[in-house]
Structure formats: structure tokens, C-alpha cells
């Protein structure tokens, strides 16, 4: 968890802060950031994944001094960034199949090791389809072998590129093109799907963390932290999808924030299978506030309000809050300025 410097006007939460020394500001506030995923890509307006990928890779580039290779599973991120003959990547970037990105990343790491280039680090990345579903066997193998790879999952909770199909990360009650919003239990069913971060923890790998695009300081500090470990590491980043979630493009970051503040998406980090820190909820909101701006949950409010379904979702959020201690968490901030910071 990052050390917070307490500046009251800007808060500690904005991207930059003119009152901070340059080296203490976020990577994203730096005009010379690497812009690993640069302009001209064809992601939808307000794409959370494009934002998340740049946040993660720019932070990883800083942490590794620019010695980084990325391996990218098939998915939105690959499709919108590399329509031939254009590429938006300003990092060494390798495209693999939908299902084998973790294995390819393992191979790259092994090859670099064989050539004695252990200074070059490997970052695998994919969407939730490529990570949680299709590439899951390769991912588990990578964890099990302890290959020196940070694998990042940009979780937009479905197969958005191919037309918004359900994935193992789609939340209950959400409408996708394969989970219709009709019937007594509309949308995706309760009790299915899986938590990839918890499964990653079960491998007892050195480092597992979750983050969102709504708290940049937290996300960057986790990437930097992950690059401080060797062996298999996993970072799961929530990236709302305006298209698949049916949210206003301008609300992408806000929706990610509401996912955290409602308790539906717990933000934590774990080492060797044990949770070591959680990001506490700052201003708790009922799940309804998170659900309402998203068309994929509209059937919970129209034609009539489905209190039974909303209550079940709320119960899930409450369980997360209880399980991870999201309200009891230690105050993350340092002491006020002038008292030792």
C-alpha cells in the first residue's frame, strides 16, 4: 500500500500535485511518461481498459527503467491497439493466442534467462476472457512453476470485443448477450463464476493484488511493488467498459470508484497466499448507486424495481466488506503536514 502524503486541497487522490516533489508524483502526472499505449488506438470512447493498460505499463516501465517486454493475449486490448499497419504500442509487444498468453510470457522469461538478460522483465496481459476463462490453465501453470512474470488481467467482466458475451468474471444479474435480462432470475446467474485473485492466492505465489482505474496512486504503487518481486505475480485491475456495461463514456472512472465504494469490488493485496493490506472504503454507498448508471442492470429497475435481486447483490457487497475488513481497515494516510511527513 502506498504512503500517502496528506495535501488537503488536492487531496492525496488526484493524479498530480504541484506541491509534491517531482519524484513523489504519479507516473501519469509526468509529461515524459512513456505513454506505452499511445494515441490513435481504436478503443471506444471512454474505454477503461485503454486507460488501465497505460497506467499499468507506464508504471512498469518506470519500475524497470524501460527494460520490459509485454505479451498480450487476444482480446479488445490487442484488437484496438494493433490494426495492421498501425500499432499503438511503444513497448516491446508480442501478441499470442487467446488462451496461451501466460505460457508465452513464461517462454519469453525463460528465453531471457537463458540469454542471461535477467535485467529485462516480462509482463503478460489480457482481458478477463483470456485470463479467467480461456487462458486459465496456462495461467495456473505459470503460477505453479513460479515463472518470473507479472500477469495483469484487465477485467471488464465479459467478452466485449466479440459482442459482450458472459465470462467467468461477469457479475451476477448483469445482462450480457448470452445472459438475457428476462425471466424470474434475469441476467447472469448467482453462484457461478470465480474470483481469479483468490485462486491466484491459493497458488501461494509471491504477490497478488487487485486495483481499479479509479485510484491511480494505489494502482501504480501495486505495479511498482509487483516489479520488486521475482517469480509469478498477478494483478487484477477492474476496467469498466462503456459499451458492454451500458454506461456513459464520461462515467467510466466514476463507475469503477462506485464498484469499490459499494464493496462489490474489494481492493487488496496479498503475499504468499495471505492478504496483507486492503484499501478501505472512503465513502460507502449502497450497491444501487453503482448499478443504476449501467444499462446491463437496467432490468433491476425497469419495468419495476427488483428489490430481491438488488438485495442479493447488496448481500454480496456486505460479505466482501466483512470478509476483507473494508471498513475496519487502518487509516491509510500519513500524519498531516508539519507533523512528521
Amino acid at each position: 500500500m502506498s504512503e500517502r502524503v496528506r495535501f488537503f486541497q488536492t487531496g492525496s487522490f488526484a493524479v498530480g500535485n504541484r506541491l509534491l516533489p517531482l519524484d513523489a508524483r504519479t507516473v501519469q502526472s509526468d509529461p515524459s511518461r512513456s505513454n506505452s499505449l499511445t494515441s490513435g488506438h481504436r478503443a471506444c470512447r471512454g474505454c477503461g481498459e485503454a486507460l488501465g493498460a497505460r497506467y499499468v505499463l507506464d508504471a512498469a516501465m518506470r519500475a524497470t527503467g524501460g527494460r520490459l517486454v509485454t505479451v498480450n493475449a487476444t482480446g479488445c486490448l490487442e484488437v484496438f491497439s494493433t490494426p495492421y499497419p498501425e500499432t499503438s504500442w511503444r513497448v516491446p509487444w508480442l501478441h499470442s493466442l487467446f488462451g496461451n498468453a501466460p505460457a508465452v510470457a513464461s517462454g519469453v522469461a525463460t528465453a531471457l534467462k537463458a540469454r542471461g538478460r535477467t535485467d529485462i522483465r516480462v509482463l503478460g496481459q489480457g482481458g478477463d476472457g483470456g485470463t479467467v476463462d480461456i487462458g486459465f490453465g496456462c495461467l495456473s501453470g505459470m503460477f505453479e512453476r513460479g515463472d518470473d512474470v507479472l500477469f495483469v488481467c484487465y477485467d471488464n467482466q465479459g467478452y466485449m470485443n466479440t459482442g459482450v458475451q458472459r465470462s467467468g468474471a461477469t457479475p451476477p444479474a448483469a445482462r450480457t448477450s448470452t445472459t438475457q435480462a428476462v425471466g424470474p432470475e434475469p441476467g447472469n446467474v448467482f453462484g457461478q463464476g470465480k474470483s481469479a485473485p483468490l485462486i491466484a492466492m491459493a497458488h501461494e505465489i509471491p504477490y497478488v493484488a487487485t486495483a481499479t482505474i479509479a485510484d491511480l496512486h494505489d494502482l501504480e504503487s501495486k505495479v511498482e511493488r509487483a516489479m520488486g518481486f521475482h517469480g509469478a505475480r498477478y494483478l487484477h485491475v477492474l476496467v469498466p467498459c462503456p459499451l458492454g456495461w451500458g454506461g456513459d463514456a464520461a462515467q467510466t472512472v466514476r463507475i469503477a470508484r462506485l464498484a469499490v465504494e459499494s464493496g462489490l469490488f474489494p481492493v487488496f493485496e496479498a503475499e504468499r497466499g495471505e492478504v496483507t493490506a486492503v484499501s478501505p472504503i472512503r465513502h460507502r454507498v449502497p450497491v444501487e448507486e453503482y448499478l443504476r448508471p449501467q444499462a446491463r442492470f437496467r432490468h433491476l429497475f425497469e419495468p419495476e424495481r427488483r428489490a430481491d435481486v438488488i438485495d442479493r447483490l447488496q448481500a454480496g457487497a456486505d460479505r466482501n466488506i466483512e470478509r476483507f475488513g473494508l471498513l475496519r481497515a487502518e487509516e491509510r494516510f500519513g500524519p498531516p503536514l508539519g507533523e512528521g511527513s
Binding site: Q9, A14, V15, G16, N17, L19, N35, G46, L51, R54
Partner: peptide, 22 residues
């Protein structure tokens, strides 16, 4: 520093950071 600088840019870099398109 508790001032929120209502309606006037105080150069917090948020717009610079949160743009998915640089």
C-alpha cells in the same frame, strides 16, 4: 490547503492522467 479551488484549475493533472487517449 483545504481550499477546493472551486471552478478554477489548480493543475492537479487529473485531466492529463485520466484521458484514455493521451
Amino acid at each position: 490547503r483545504r481550499c477546493m479551488s472551486c471552478g478554477n484549475c489548480f493543475e492537479c493533472d487529473n485531466c492529463f492522467g485520466v484521458c484514455p487517449d493521451n
